[in-house]
Computed example of a mutant assay.
Amino acid sequence: MDIEYLRDYCLSKSGTTEDFPFDKNTLVFKVVGKMFALAPLDQWEKGLASINLKANPEYALELRAAYESIQPGFHMNKKHWNTLDIYKGELSPKLIMALIDHSYDMVVKGMTKKKRQELNL
Rank of each mutant, 00 (worst) to 15 (best):
L91V: 14
K113T: 13
K109F: 06
G73K: 02
I96S: 08
K114N: 14
M97F: 15
H75A: 04
K78M: 03
N82K: 02
P93K: 11
H75D: 04
W81C: 00
K109H: 10
V108Y: 05
I96N: 09
L91W: 04
F74W: 12
M106V: 05
A66K: 14
Y87F: 15
K109Y: 07
H102I: 01
V107G: 00
V108K: 06
G89C: 12
Q71M: 12
N77M: 00
N77R: 00
M76G: 05
I86N: 03
V108H: 06
G73E: 03
P93G: 13
Y67I: 01
A98Q: 13
E90Y: 03
T112C: 08
K78L: 03
V107Q: 01
Y87D: 07
K113D: 07
H102Y: 09
Q71W: 07
K113L: 09
E68T: 12
K109D: 09
V107C: 00
I86Y: 05
K109R: 14
I100Q: 05
M106K: 08
D85E: 13
K94W: 07
Q71L: 14
V108T: 08
K79N: 11
H102G: 04
S69D: 02
K109S: 13
G110L: 03
K115W: 06
A98M: 11
K109Q: 10
H80A: 07
L91Y: 06
